[in-house]
């Protein structure tokens, strides 16, 4: 079943002679439960594509439809509400809040959805930290965690609200190969256990090997779309 559909999506930055065409007429359909990687050289349009899918940006033309809702034409408040409930983000540099513990960073994602039931929050947060193997370290702050542990906190934070889609922009770029493998395996396990759709961008061939679908982008166009 289709979760997300992009039709003839163009994205242009700048004006006049300084115009940059980041995406040119991209068509893409993502189904529920996919574990998809978007890859390609730097500047090919991977991040722009993820930004449009995650309702962080609007296309210059074309449509982005998420579960029959046109998210490309939403205003910024509607986009924020959409991201709050339906999309989880994992960033390359983790972007954890340094003054909060691992537990509180994950709790934060639930709090902003407006859940007030503290028992429910506690159970969901501890459950998710347990899933990513961090239940022992939940009271540590980010500066007391390794890079891999931080990224696992970020994974837990993205997943704790049970979003329909998780977007990860180069989630292993700052990690060594062993830790990258651990993190991507956690993401894959979450995909299998929770049936959450994952789309992640990467340059790392080892990480790509885990994807069930590989979408290659070159010069703002999808040049290759392979399912395995």
């Amino acid at each position: 079943m289709s979760l997300l559909t992009l039709e003839h999506v163009d994205k242009t930055y700048g004006q006049g002679d300084l115009q940059v065409h980041a995406l040119n007429g991209v068509d893409l359909t993502i189904s529920k439960g996919e574990f998809t990687t978007v890859f390609g050289p730097s500047g090919s349009g991977k991040t722009t594509l993820l930004n449009l899918i995650g309702a962080l940006d609007r296309p210059t033309s074309g449509s982005v439809v998420f579960l029959d809702k046109p998210i490309g034409s939403m205003n910024r408040h509607e986009q924020a509400a959409h991201r709050r409930f339906h999309v989880g983000f994992i960033f390359q540099s983790y972007n954890l809040i340094p003054v909060l513990t691992a537990y509180e960073n994950v709790e934060f994602a639930l709090k902003i959805t407006g859940i007030r039931d503290s028992k429910k929050i506690h159970s969901q947060v501890t459950d998710m930290l347990d899933h990513v193997g961090l239940s022992e370290l939940m009271h540590r702050r980010p500066n007391q965690l390794s890079g891999g542990q931080k990224q696992r906190v970020a994974v837990a934070r993205a997943l704790v609200k049970h979003p329909k889609l998780v977007l990860a922009d180069e989630p292993t770029a700052n990690l060594d190969s062993k830790t990258s493998k651990e993190v991507i395996e956690v993401m894959l396990r979450m995909n299998r256990e929770l049936h959450t759709t994952f789309i992640f961008s990467t340059h790392d061939p080892m990480v790509m090997e885990y994807a069930r679908r590989m979408v290659e982008i070159r010069d703002g166009n999808i040049s290759q779309d392979t399912e395995r």
Partner: peptide, 16 residues
Amino acid sequence: EKEIGMMKAMGMGESS
């Protein structure tokens, strides 16, 4: 700035 960006990406409202 990055923290604010992350919060907004996660859907935190401007009013919050």
